[in-house]
Simulated assay, not measured.
Amino acid sequence: MVSDTTDVFKEIRPYRDDEVAGAIQRLIHDDEFIGAIAKYRFSGLSRWGGAAIRSLIRLYLGWRWRKVNSIRQVQLEVATYMEKMIARTTSGVTYSGLENIKPGVGYLFISNHRDIALDPAFVNWGLHSHGLDTVRIAIGDNLLRKPCVTELMKLNKSFIVKRSAKGPREMMKAFSELSSYLRHSIDEGHSIWIAQKEGRAKDGDDKTDPAILKMFHMEGKRQKIPFGDYIRSLNLVPVSISYEYDPGDLAKARELHAKATHGGYEKSEFEDIQSIVQGIVGQKGRVHVTFGQPVHGDFDNADDLAAAIDREIHANYHLFPSNLLAAGQTAGVDPAAAEAFERHMTGIPADLRERVLSMYARPVLNKD
C-alpha cells in the first residue's frame, strides 16, 4: 500500500480500505443521495411522508453498511445489487473468453462503450462470477458534478480521467499522470477498464481513438521504451460488450437527430447522471460480453494498434436478432424475437426510427 507521504495519485485514484468507512458516512448524511433513493425506490410514499422515508433510509443504510470497511466488502455489496438488476432488467448475461484471463495478473481491458456505468459493471460481473478480481474503472471528471456521485464512484474502484483539463500543458500533465497510474496499477496486479474512446458510441459504430493508445505509451516514452514493447507489457485485452436492447437508444437517437438538424446538441447539467439511471433501470434483453485474446502483435504506432483492436472488437461482437433485423437479415431469426423487436421499434418516434435501426445494424456492417 502506498503511504500518504508518497501518495502521488491521490487526486485521481479510487478510495483505499482506510477511506471506506468515512465515505460511507458521508453518503448516508448526503441529502441529495438519500433523496434520490427515496425518489426512485419509494416515489409514491415520498410525496406523503418524505422526511420520515428519508430518515428510515438513513437508518437502514447505516445498519446495512455498518460492517463495510474495505473495498472488497464494497464490491460484494455492489454484486448483490448487480444480481438484482440483472434479474429485473435482462433476459440473461453470458460471457466468452474468460479462459484467457489469469488470476493475479493485471490487465488493461479496452472495450467498446455503449453505457456509462453498465459496460464496466458487466465486465466486473463476469470477472467476479469466475472468481477473478474486479477492475479499476476509468471515469471522466464530467460525471463527478455531485459529491455523492464522486463518493459512489471512488468506492467502486473508479479513478478519474481529467477531461476538463484546459490548455496543452495542463492536459499533458493530466494524461501523463493517468498513464503513470495505469502502469502502477498493472504492475501491482490490478486490472483496468477503459473505453476505446471518449464518450459512448451513440451511432453503434465502435472505433478506437488512437489518442487513448498514445496516452497509454506516455509512461513508456518517459522510460524510453518503444511503443510496441511497452504496449505488450500492459496485457491489453480488447472486450466486446453487446446489448440486445440498448436502454439509452432513444436518448442517443435524439442527440444525433439534434446534431444533424440543428448543428449541435446542448446537454442538460445532469444528463449523464440521468443516462446512468436509465441504463440501470431500463430493459436490456440479453447481454453478452466477450473477452478477446491479449494483444501480442508488433505495432509501431497507435493507428495500427487501434485498427487491430477494432478488428478484434468487431469480430467478437455478439449479434442479437435486434442487430440482424435492423440490418435487414431476417433469415433464421426466431419469429418471437422478430415480434419483440417490432414492438420495441413501435415505441420509437417515427422521425427517429431510422437512426435507431442504423444504431443496431452497425455491428453487423462492421463484421463484413
Rank of each mutant, 00 (worst) to 15 (best):
K259D: 03
Y230H: 13
D229P: 02
Q329F: 04
D246T: 09
I276K: 04
F299N: 06
N316S: 13
E312K: 15
K267L: 11
N301I: 04
R254I: 14
K284E: 13
Q293K: 15
E342P: 00
D272E: 12
A253F: 08
K252V: 11
V281N: 03
K267C: 11
A308R: 13
D246E: 11
P335T: 06
D229Y: 00
N316F: 07
S233M: 04
I225F: 01
H257V: 12
G220R: 04
D298R: 13
R286W: 01
S233A: 14
R343A: 14
A327V: 08
T261L: 04
A306T: 09
A338W: 03
S240R: 03
V287R: 02
F291Q: 00
K252L: 08
I231S: 01
F270Q: 00
G228W: 01
A337V: 05
R254G: 04
L236F: 02
Q283A: 09
A315Q: 13
S242C: 07
A315V: 05
K267P: 10
G297A: 11
Y230Q: 14
D300G: 15
G285M: 07
Q223G: 01
I313P: 01
L236Y: 00
E271L: 06
D272M: 08
R254E: 15
D300I: 03
D303F: 11
F270N: 07
G248H: 01
A258H: 04
E255L: 11
L234I: 02
F320G: 08
R286T: 05
E269Q: 13
N316M: 06
L256C: 03
S322Q: 05
F299R: 12
N316L: 08
D334V: 05
V295I: 15
N301W: 10
F227T: 10
G264T: 10
E266M: 06
K224S: 14
Q293E: 13
D246C: 09
D298P: 00
I241K: 03
Y265M: 10
V237R: 02
A306G: 10
L250F: 06
A315N: 09
L234C: 04
H257F: 12
K284N: 11
I225W: 00
A251Y: 03
Y245L: 15
Q274E: 15
K221S: 15
G263H: 02
D249F: 08
